[in-house]
Design a protein around this nucleic acid. Structure first.
Lengths: 196, 196
DNA sequence: ACCTGAACACCGTTCAAGT
DNA sequence: ACCTGAACACCGTTCAAGT
């Protein structure tokens, strides 16, 4: 019997409540705070109760990863050049990723980009590359390069050392600028590879 | 008393023997196989004996990370254009990183690039950017972009899904090509940003 | 200085059992 | 179907004690 519940009453866990609690744990204490046992503790259930709603910890995290990408806003269609909109899309992704610093390193190591939201973003970017006149197979390669660069830079930025933002140690603002400049270089190079 | 040693004899651990055993463990079973307890077991000592030679697991891994970078070969000086040599340097780094797939994701999350070998590579790349005519502060930004791109792509490549190399799933060879193409785009963009 | 025994404070996951 | 108790097989690290 757990506090907050009288005898015989079920915990009433849901897949959604589990995921929500996981996000809270992550927001409060980072990745190290997210253990199955801590998660169970927060929900006032035994650790193994979670396995009725989630296959395992890996599957749980995969869901969290894709959920984050839901926050990326696709640029308004038919406004500005395709390359400009590509820049906006990747910059928005970068910003959203940095709002969840602890998760970022996981995107690169896992297959990661296979959830529905990741696919949506991939399709948008692919369409923009086509519109920009980049032919296959360069477009597929460019897509992968843009994704890797964005996630990689976010992962790099996500764990700033203590004395960041002072002296020659760049802070979050400088790194954001740096990201944008590199993204511009990349898009310039991709455009120049077009057949003219 | 441990097997292989008679009573009263010391284990005779060294910082070097510990690091070597760690590398072996890593090569045989990947990152999950590298635990302090497994490491102690392989060296026939109690787990806490390791702490006489290494501050903690994080410090141990930091050493391993920088050691890997010792394998990166600097391009021969005064041969070819600076940009070509930059390409070679980063491509060599990419190859060396992929020889130790399990460690790659750690480079991005940690400060990582603060060991002696990482500094050496950074200095070489910075000199090449200067020679290529890239002024400050663009050169510093370009350096960071190149590093992040290279490590990021290696991290992405390092954990290939099962069915890789078939159908539309790219294998290691395709990804290596993809990395090189993206590196070229990046260097093109960086060069185009020079004042002419 | 270097190593051990024992312990502390944890992990993820499984299995049989209860309702 | 959903949850618990108990257990399995682990972790990294610290502390006091021995040589």
């Amino acid at each position: 019997m757990q506090p907050g519940r009288t005898a015989g009453q079920r915990a009433g866990l849901t897949r959604e409540t589990v995921l929500r609690a996981a996000r809270e744990l992550l927001a409060e204490g980072g990745l190290t705070a997210l253990s199955m046992r801590a998660l169970a503790g927060r929900l006032d259930v035994a650790p193994n109760a979670l396995y009725s709603h989630v296959a395992n910890k890996t599957a749980l995290i995969d869901d969290l990863l894709d959920d984050v990408l839901a926050g990326v806003e696709a640029p308004a269609p038919d406004t500005g050049a395709p390359v400009t909109r590509l820049h906006q899309l990747m910059a928005s992704t970068y910003t959203v990723l940095l709002a969840h610093p602890d998760l970022v390193p996981l995107y690169l190591s896992r297959q990661g980009a296979r959830g529905p939201h990741a696919q949506r973003l991939g399709n948008i970017a692919a369409a923009l590359l086509r519109r920009a006149g980049v032919p296959e197979p360069a477009a597929s390669e460019a897509l992968r390069v843009l994704i890797v660069y964005t996630i990689g830079f976010a992962a790099f930025t996500s764990h700033l050392p203590e004395g960041a933002g002072t002296e020659h140690q760049p802070g979050a603002a400088e790194l954001h600028d740096n990201f944008g400049r590199g993204l511009g270089w990349l898009l310039t190079g991709i455009q120049r590879s077009r057949p003219s």
